[in-house]
Design a protein around this nucleic acid. Structure first.
Lengths: 156, 156
DNA sequence: ACAAGATAGTTGACCTGTCAACTTTCTATT
DNA sequence: AATAGAAAGTTGACAGGTCAACTATCTTGT
């Protein structure tokens, strides 16, 4: 478990200049918070929740699509989907046009879990962003976009 | 290994509204890039590199401080430091004022590795941010700050 | 001065993420 | 049509992260 950070982060300034440090730090904190929230209200792990959200958003999709969209390892996704199927939250059928891929959708239970959780997670989301103005948020998203694009390029 | 993302991220829009999704995605990409860069130029893992950077920035510090500053698990840090000590990159002495804590600093070799890598990592950093204006970057940092503060609060 | 609790750091057990190999199916090229 | 290469998904092996327990030391309150 992470410990609370004290106001005296003496050398936080030293890494301020490194975006990636900052991001990783925030990310760690957000994960702790999200995981705690999820396990308090469901039997889902963070990746499972993400998969459910993505499947819900797309209607019907494939594991490879999830991998690209979430930028997550396909092995990891394969296992998360297996677990979700075991819990009865998703159903799948083989694509007619491509025998390799199976199309995933939420089951009735999956949709119910999503409905229940999305309210909580949206509230969390609002808490996270309600100190930011719309303009600020827009800039933030734009910056993330740029960062991501740059992160795709290998460093020489 | 993550796969390249195609321009057709059909339902990326569906998760656009979730900051944490976006962050996780960018974060994953950045980690892949950073890890590749590090292993191409050194024998350091990402956490080891972070520890070295933080120790370098602080002069002399303790494991607990590193844990708070980086918001990382103290077990993880303990192991990373052990590995760095084995590689000869850090040295430590027991604090005079507190027998529990040991104060860490870079060895000559550690400092050399840091010097060598920091140039490369700074270049990467510039690449990541050079499409952003100063104002944009400032807003981005401010937003991260706010996010982090909000992430410390438990969700009810 | 002393007990109760907090903090530093380590470790074992466990869980999750990562990588690579593999099968199956599809696509493109000839 | 045959074949080479790419893509979907699964799996095993491993690395890395996480959690909780533990010892040792320090701090606080009485």
């Amino acid at each position: 478990m992470l410990e609370e950070s004290k106001p005296t982060d003496r050398f936080a300034a030293g890494l301020t200049s490194f975006v990636t440090f900052r991001l990783a730090r925030v990310q760690n904190r957000l994960n702790v918070q999200a995981t705690a929230t999820l396990s308090a209200h469901s039997d889902l792990s963070l990746t499972e929740w993400r998969m459910i959200s993505l499947i819900n958003a797309s209607g019907e999709t494939s594991a490879a699509d999830l991998s690209r969209t979430a930028q997550m390892d396909k092995g990891q996704i394969s296992r998360a989907l297996k677990s979700l199927a075991a819990k009865g939250y998703i159903a799948s059928r083989t694509s007619a046009s491509d025998q390799r891929q199976s199309l995933l959708r939420l089951s009735a239970e999956g949709a119910a879990v999503h409905r229940r959780l999305v309210a909580i997670m949206r509230r969390r989301q609002e808490r996270l962003t309600d100190t930011m103005s719309d303009a600020e948020l827009a800039t933030f998203y734009a910056a993330l976009e740029k960062l991501e694009a740059a992160a795709m390029e290998p460093v020489i």
